[in-house]
Design a protein around this nucleic acid. Structure first.
Length: 279
DNA sequence: TTTCATGTTCAGCA
DNA sequence: GTGCTGAACATGAA
């Protein structure tokens, strides 16, 4: 479920708990999570480094590695790359106490740890990913990596006009366009539904049919919805009561008019919307 | 036992 | 090249 706000929360989590710490050991508990790098090389590249910075675009997180010992100094280090797939999250454990993001699952702490980064002070950072759709890897240059994947600008930093122009350059239904990471990076299924609900736009509307007001609203709500979620540390329960997210379930009712929500597959993804107030 | 899930990528077709 | 559909990936919950 991690979309942009959750990954931003993970980024801050790393910044808060792990930045500046030296990694003395890396454990790869499930090699399938690694993307394009053998476990030995992944481990060798990271052990002995400090985590020295973080970078995020859309749902992609990069952590800068800085060599600590003299032999490695001056050598260009790759970045640690993390993608959280559908079920990924981080936890940090110090003196037997485990901290998990609001978003994470603390009921079965070790069940899906795929990579563990151990620090010199005996604390450690765990990358959890139940379904193995996520990825961990090494990237020489995050910009090139994102470019090669045709990733669009980040949804929280893209400016209004470029966003609207990019939207208008696409054809088809609005919802699949919002989910297209090459248009804007970071919007996932849940927040796409939320933006459309807040703007009262039907998810199957063609982009070409949207009015100027619709486009302006989408930009404003994209920023609002994502920023509001970041601001509550991705604890969705704290989002405003009029958000669709609280009733985004079978038999859920529209927060505005209490109409039974429609559930429909649009662009291959389960979509919730109010058949009365979204059109 | 079967269906479904919040992400991404790719094949195939128009 | 774009748009659209469906499948695949792996796991567990309902």
């Amino acid at each position: 479920m991690p979309e942009l706000p959750e990954v931003e929360t993970f980024k801050r989590f790393v910044g808060c708990h792990a930045l500046g710490k030296k990694i003395c050991k890396v454990q790869v508990l499930h090699a399938k999570i690694l993307e394009g790098v053998p476990a030995e090389r992944f481990i060798a590249a990271i052990e002995g480094c400090c985590l020295s910075g973080t970078l995020r675009r859309g749902k992609h997180l990069f952590v800068a590695l800085e060599p600590v010992n003299a032999r490695q100094k001056g050598v260009a280090k790759p970045w640690l790359y993390l993608h959280f797939g559908m079920t990924g999250y981080l936890s940090y454990t110090e003196q037997g106490k485990t901290m998990v993001n609001a978003y994470g699952d603390s009921s079965r702490p070790d069940a899906h740890v795929r990579v563990r980064f151990c620090f010199e002070d005996d604390s450690y950072l765990d990358f959890h990913e139940q379904r193995l759709f996520g990825k961990a890897g090494l990237v020489d240059n995050p910009q090139d990596y994102l470019e090669n994947r045709h990733l669009g600008p980040d949804a929280l930093t893209v400016e209004r006009q470029p966003f609207i122009e990019s939207l208008q350059s696409r054809k088809g239904q609005i919802k699949p366009v919002l989910l297209n990471q090459s248009m804007v990076a970071g919007i996932g299924n849940v927040y796409a539904d939320e933006m459309l609900f807040q703007c009262r736009i039907h998810p199957e509307r063609r982009v070409a049919e949207l009015t100027e007001a619709d486009l302006q609203c989408l930009y404003a709500q994209m920023v609002d919805v994502l920023q509001n979620t970041v601001d509550v540390g991705s604890d969705r329960a704290q989002l405003p009561p009029y958000y669709l997210i609280h009733v985004r379930e079978k038999k859920g009712r529209c927060p505005r008019d209490k109409t039974l929500l429609t559930v429909k597959t649009i662009g291959g993804r389960t979509t919730y919307f109010c058949p009365v107030c979204q059109h």
